[in-house]
Design a protein around this nucleic acid. Structure first.
Lengths: 237, 237
DNA sequence: ACCTGAACACCGTTCAAGT
DNA sequence: ACCTGAACACCGTTCAAGT
């Protein structure tokens, strides 16, 4: 390695005081989240990271909820939409897309929880919705039903990620599960006959990927079976 | 109204410094929540309400998550389980129970969000699970499937309450919806043909009770249709 | 043994004042 | 016009010290 008169890399440690932009702030937020978790992504921590005061961030973001939504929109670019256009069973392809979305959120569990409440509306989110609609269309789901179904599927994926993801990372996750297992085991058979008959093993079984895949299957087959309540059987036109 | 020598009611303003108990703390927390919303139910606010310092609460509650779970358990006593034992179509009765549960959470939206992550395990929660299992049993759902189904149904109800309830109370709820509506309306038809074809009206339609009832219907019919993946078709025994 | 004052280490958001 | 220091009004949780 020949010495250089002027080292390129170590010139300075960080991009020292790059001009603030919305994109730059959101990118920094994602970096901090991936390194330290969402609960470290606070306006103050982020401002420190960007060498400024917290007030400056409010020029670009209305509040913390908007920051979270922008972070999700950034991450949503990673959803694998290729199954939308491949050949194969449309249900399998739909489940693949939903899994891809869910996996991204499972890695950032707090984000799923917060996004449950602030739905994004950027291009990445629209593309995801578009892809799901295309698959439902391929499966012959009527448009009025598909409009509701896309929400239902994404809502289910998001909320499952919020639940499972946060649970996985929680410090007292084991404690909490033990409490539930004990409660189930000790449930007296005369008050709770169904619970006693099933037993703890059955009730707590399969909290692996199988359960989510089953959930997606339930939704898809339910969607195919259940007409919207208000709709009269309209003539096709 | 004859005058009394010693007014009973106005003797003292509040139950001045009743001994702390776990039940008392949780009851106070529910009162504060109903009066001021969940975000005002903080350990410090609650301690002030009970005329003590925040540290004292940690004798009875491990942390804020445990407080929230205890509050839900208290509220869960209000779920109307009568449809479990009435006559009538089991699906309609199941939907009634789920609605009763959801309505309670819709009134306390922040609670739903927080409970999504800390599942309760008290008697009220067990009774709810027991009731749902009984209805699934009445509908002929196989036990192994019912074990997963009860979780799926409660999870869906909880997460919908978290989403809808918080949205309803959010200050910028209208703003946020406007952003989504605009994004949908302006979605270019060549990139997002499905979205463009459906139109905003269809996609945003029916965010009333119909949509949740439809969701429950989708789940129930999906549950009836979808076997658990791992299960071989077992002989009945 | 049971309880708690005081401290530690933080928060989000606003707004008057600076450049 | 654009940006931000400093302040306002709070947080959860711990632990050493008191009764």
């Amino acid at each position: 390695m020949a010495p250089r008169t002027r080292p390129v890399v170590s010139r300075r440690e960080r991009p020292a005081k790059a001009a603030l932009t919305r994109e730059g702030i959101v990118a920094a937020a994602v970096t901090v989240m991936q390194a330290e978790g969402l609960d470290r992504v606070t306006m103050r921590r982020l401002a420190a990271e960007l060498d400024t005061g917290p007030a400056s961030l409010y020029v670009y973001l209305r509040n913390t909820a908007e920051l979270h939504a922008a972070m999700l929109e950034e991450l949503l670019g990673q959803v694998d939409l290729s199954p939308v256009t491949t050949a194969g069973d449309w249900q399998d392809r739909l489940i693949k897309v939903l899994w891809s979305y869910t996996l991204i959120l499972l890695e950032q569990p707090g984000l799923a929880q917060s996004v449950l409440v602030t739905r994004p509306s950027g291009p990445a989110y629209l593309s995801l919705a578009e892809g799901i609609l295309a698959l439902l269309d391929a499966g012959g789901v009527a448009p009025d039903r598909a409009a509701w179904a896309v929400d239902l599927l994404l809502h289910f994926a998001t909320s499952t990620a919020a639940e499972q993801g946060t649970r996985a990372r929680a410090i007292d996750a084991q404690d909490e599960e033990d409490t539930l297992v004990t409660a189930l085991r000790e449930a007296p058979a005369d008050t709770y006959p169904q619970i006693a008959a099933l037993g703890v093993a059955e009730l707590m079984s399969g909290w692996g990927p199988d359960r989510l895949t089953w959930g997606f299957g339930v939704l898809i087959s339910g969607i195919l079976q259940t007409p919207r309540p208000d709709q009269e059987t309209a003539p096709d036109c």
